[in-house]
Design a protein around this nucleic acid. Sequence first.
DNA 1: TAGATTGTTAATCGATTAACAATC
DNA 2: TAGATTGTTAATCGATTAACAATC
Lengths: 214, 214
Amino acid sequence: MVSSKDVSKSVLKRLPGYLAYLKNMPEDSPSHISATALANALGMGEVQVRKDLALVSDGGRPKIGYLRVRLIEDIEQFLGYDNTTDAVLIGAGRLGCALLDYEGFEEYGLNILAAFDTNPAKVGVDETGKPILPLDQLSQFCEEHKVLMGIVTVPAACAQSVCDLLVENGIKAIWNFAPIHVDVPKNILLQTQNMATSLALLSVHLQAQMKTKE
Amino acid sequence: MVSSKDVSKSVLKRLPGYLAYLKNMPEDSPSHISATALANALGMGEVQVRKDLALVSDGGRPKIGYLRVRLIEDIEQFLGYDNTTDAVLIGAGRLGCALLDYEGFEEYGLNILAAFDTNPAKVGVDETGKPILPLDQLSQFCEEHKVLMGIVTVPAACAQSVCDLLVENGIKAIWNFAPIHVDVPKNILLQTQNMATSLALLSVHLQAQMKTKE
DNA sequence: TAGATTGTTAATCGATTAACAATC
DNA sequence: TAGATTGTTAATCGATTAACAATC
């Protein structure tokens, strides 16, 4: 409940899963849900779920569980989804545009204001009406809108320089989709969305599978 | 080196990072690299890197380090990137098509053969010439090509049924991009590419940042 | 040889799980 | 009351880190 406790990274990674499940429950479900029920539904340990929920909400009542709508609110508040974060996106390629147009981010309080690209042919307005601007307007834009988050969807070769540029312009958190290691000052949070990591897990699993089959 | 040791998930997650760094080194770099040097470059603990490398390669020599090209090979082999995995993709929306056309997957031994969609308007051939087929041809296609991996880029509401369908058709590993929990038999590996997870980490960090600033 | 680097064995740390008391 | 569920305190487990011996 009280914010700056020992919030481990692993807890933060599990919370979105609970949230998605709770939000996707049918309308006619019971108004309350227990940590046990949630754990079973997601195939997790019940003690872990109970502990995680206790961290974000004090609405748990013995014998009854948590009021679902209340629990959703508490998780959202804990994750900061209740107040909107403005972001800029750099690199209006296919992936960049897919993210720019994705409406689901609203749910997480993320609002991508605009994309930036060095290619003049890309400049304009995209399918859903969001602006794509030339990269040299980034600086002014960030200052004007007090942007704190940057999303990087440029090729690997440009990723480092784009991140540097974002940091120079006051960005505090970077969501990087380029499959490469970039260095940032340590007060900046860099989260690399690593597809390669997922692929590695899948690939190794398939290999093992093949071996046992043979 | 020998495969089925105690290969923890966390090691697997770090290996792609080493690989990307090694492959992106300039041509004129020294032919050998030490675990120490690699650790420093990536901002990691040197003991951890050394241990990870020892797991995948026995090419490390005291005082000299690892021959870079050899180390790259060893990591790729360990991760199974050396033999190609064929995959099908379900859901030819914006994200789906972005993945379908992404050429970088080749590097990881992943080959997306075709996309499938229920929308007849999507059926045909995409920008890079990859086929988009009607979903009812999935079964035949999987059997014909002995596909083991499925990539799911459908809306959350369809994700479960699509995963069920994939499992029915012999898929052993699923890469799920839908932001929702799905259940699969426990011999099937499900890897959910959770954007929400990354967003949670970024969001919480920004919140904390704001608080300290005030 | 001396020093850098390796691989390994032991110690620490953190997160998960188990056991239990408290409560409606 | 009895039983389900909560939150908490203690034990276990696994991964990371530290210390050290081996090697070129």
